[in-house]
């Protein structure tokens, strides 16, 4: 292994991170899905440092992709900001519970939850219908409903939002597990918006992208102070992921919602297996 110099590490990691950024910005997960296993399995980096790099990659994907999604009105800003209340409080509580809860059991529980969301998303793969009415009091009062221009379908799509209370609860859990397990909280955020709140799939992944940066920032301070953010790893990851997210954010508008769902189901299944493996073998 002596032949792999720091320069090789930086260059190859940047290349892998570009891929992570493309994928992460498409499905709203933030690239940690790719970055953590690559760092631990391929480069044998300590898991604590890999998780720190993952947090950086989440923030990089989020900011890079959201700059485009917000401008293109793919994000539901109001819904995203409203739900951030729950994710940031979840992330904050998770940062303090991290030493109290058994991580391995959490991985297994989380794997089961993700497996279920992958299945539910898969079942909904053909559904493209959006709601035209909503009697959700919170959504109506805060005007969380929205519309976006779908490039693939070539038309403006207006949609109504429901299930804000369920959405808030899932978002709290999403923030909690992202801080506890150091994984991108998008894996729970997208199903919360897609399945519980009936946002269109593309709006769900774009809005998840918008939100994950804030959730990750809420625990990034703790990770930084604990010395988990190694600049030699974080630098290529941040730069590579940012470049990838700029590409991914240009692709999302052009592909169909059902393609996005398919990619999401596959990625979710992979994370589910990853989590199970970490929970069972430690």
């Amino acid at each position: 292994m002596g032949a792999v110099t720091p320069l090789d590490l930086v260059l190859s990691l940047a290349a892998v991170s570009v891929l992570a950024g493309v994928l992460g910005s498409l499905v709203g997960l933030g690239g940690g899905v790719v970055v953590v296993p690559v760092l631990t399995l391929l480069y044998h980096v300590d898991i604590r440092l890999a998780i720190g790099a993952s947090i950086v990659s989440v923030i990089a994907t989020s900011s890079g992709a959201a700059a485009a999604y917000v401008r293109d009105r793919m994000c539901n800003l109001r819904a995203g900001m409203f739900l951030e209340i729950a994710t940031t409080i979840g992330a904050l509580s998770g940062a303090f519970l991290t030493t109290l809860l058994p991580a391995r059991a959490l991985f297994v529980v989380f794997a089961v939850v993700l497996g279920y969301s992958a299945f539910a998303t898969f079942r909904k793969r053909h559904a493209a219908a959006v709601l035209t009415t909503s009697n959700d009091r919170i959504a109506n009062a805060l005007q969380l409903h929205g519309s976006y221009y779908d490039l693939a379908e070539g038309r403006e799509i207006a949609y109504k939002v429901v299930g804000t209370k369920l959405g808030l609860s899932v978002m709290y859990v999403a923030g909690l597990v992202s801080a506890l397990l150091g994984i991108g909280s998008g894996a729970l955020k997208v199903p919360a918006m897609d399945l519980a709140m009936h946002l269109p799939m593309k709006v769900s992944t774009a809005t998840s992208n918008f939100m994950i940066g804030v959730t990750a920032a809420a625990s990034a301070g703790v990770y930084f102070a604990r010395g988990q953010i190694d600049p030699v790893i974080a630098a290529p990851v941040a730069v590579g992921v940012l470049c990838g997210s700029l590409v991914g954010s240009r692709v999302l508008g052009r592909i169909t919602s059902s393609t996005v769902r398919w990619v999401f189901v596959v990625v979710l299944t992979v994370i589910c297996v990853e989590m199970l493996q970490r929970g069972i073998t430690g």
Partner: peptide, 27 residues
């Protein structure tokens, strides 16, 4: 600052920079 980090001048393994014992500013 660290010519040894590049691939041409030596075999400095990146592991020294990514192991749990590596030091970098975190305060």
């Amino acid at each position: 600052h660290h010519p040894g980090y590049g691939s041409f001048t030596g075999h400095f393994s990146y592991h020294r920079l990514t192991s749990p014992s590596t030091t970098f500013p975190h305060t």
